[in-house]
Design a protein around this nucleic acid. Structure first.
Lengths: 173, 173
DNA sequence: TATAATCCCGACTAATTTAGTCAACTATTC
DNA sequence: GAATAGTTGACTAAATTAGTCGGGATTATA
């Protein structure tokens, strides 16, 4: 998962959907107008959202998109993961591979931990929360710290050359 | 603050400094070798670190860099802020400015909150922690949630066009 | 069955950013 | 004064992101 403006566009669009789908399928032209996102770009985003199973489409006149699950069952992380395709990190993935010539780099744990930290936040906040402006740190702090499910990959930016020899490092666990 | 590989390089270099400065100033050539970061690039990074008051330099033979404060008094956030210069976010900064034509966008709080979340993490972890691999989620969760100091700007990536009309939005508070 | 609305898809381009290099200069030690 | 090491600004290359364009497929409705 990466945090880019593409992800933000997608979240905005999905929130628009949450707020407008009660009257049936919402077409992209409408979202485009309300959210000031170009239609072509929305098409690109919704292709991914559909492939990711987050929305379903209805074609033809009167068609559009609907959420595929309830708004409180879709997390912000889900949306971002759907649109920002996962570039498989090539190194530094399994503890001892990559980093500095076979040695786990000193900062590996830091980025790992940060990634998990961000993930835990975005995975807890649902579209419903955002739509209701029910987003606060408190919500996250209440989430159980232990027995938290498998740490998911987070990638902060696109070009993540390791601090070393052009190899790739990412905050990926 | 932005999360890019430049910041990661800087953190790696600083950790190298933490581990090697006990014998006096550490020169960039040495860091370059150990961390596999090009000398020229290190020069660029350390200029900023020096300007940010995180390191001090000693010129001439035997010279190099030293931390300007104790390792447990420098946070990872300090380092990242020093090297990734702040691009002043033009809109969406003061609650009601920017976003969608004067209206605070629906996702504004989300990014605000996420930014603060990340900041709180990176601000708590010191270079000492990282050097000692003393980095865990627990460490953060122990930090006091309330009365936490002013929320600092976080910017996730470089090109953050708002989901709207090319205006700029950032997770900036 | 024609038409229009709407999603679907691939290829392409433009803009921005990041990463990194180069060359020359200044200060300090021996 | 020669070598070491930091200082600085300008420049380049690569990668990524954001966004466009043109055409195609599907379906409702008249």
């Amino acid at each position: 998962m990466r945090l880019t403006s593409k992800g933000r566009y997608a979240v905005s669009a999905m929130i628009d959907l949450v707020k407008n789908q009660h009257q049936g399928a919402v077409n992209l032209a409408a979202i485009s107008e309300r959210q000031f996102i170009s239609l072509s770009y929305l098409e690109q985003l919704f292709r991914r959202l559909r492939e990711g199973g987050l929305v379903k489409s209805i074609r033809g006149p009167g068609g559009g998109y609907l959420l595929n699950r309830a708004a409180d069952k879709i997390s912000v992380a889900d949306v971002i993961r759907a649109v920002d395709e996962q570039i498989q990190a090539t190194r530094c993935v399994n503890a001892l591979r990559g980093c500095h010539r076979g040695n786990r780099c000193d900062t590996h744990e830091l980025w790992d931990s940060l990634g998990m930290h961000i993930y835990r936040y975005l995975d807890v906040v649902s579209l419903q929360d955002v739509a209701e402006k029910n987003v606060s740190l408190a919500a996250v702090e209440l989430a159980p710290a232990e027995n938290y499910p498998p740490c998911q990959p987070i990638q902060f930016d696109a070009s993540i050359a390791a601090a070393g020899s052009g190899e790739r490092i990412a905050a990926v666990s």
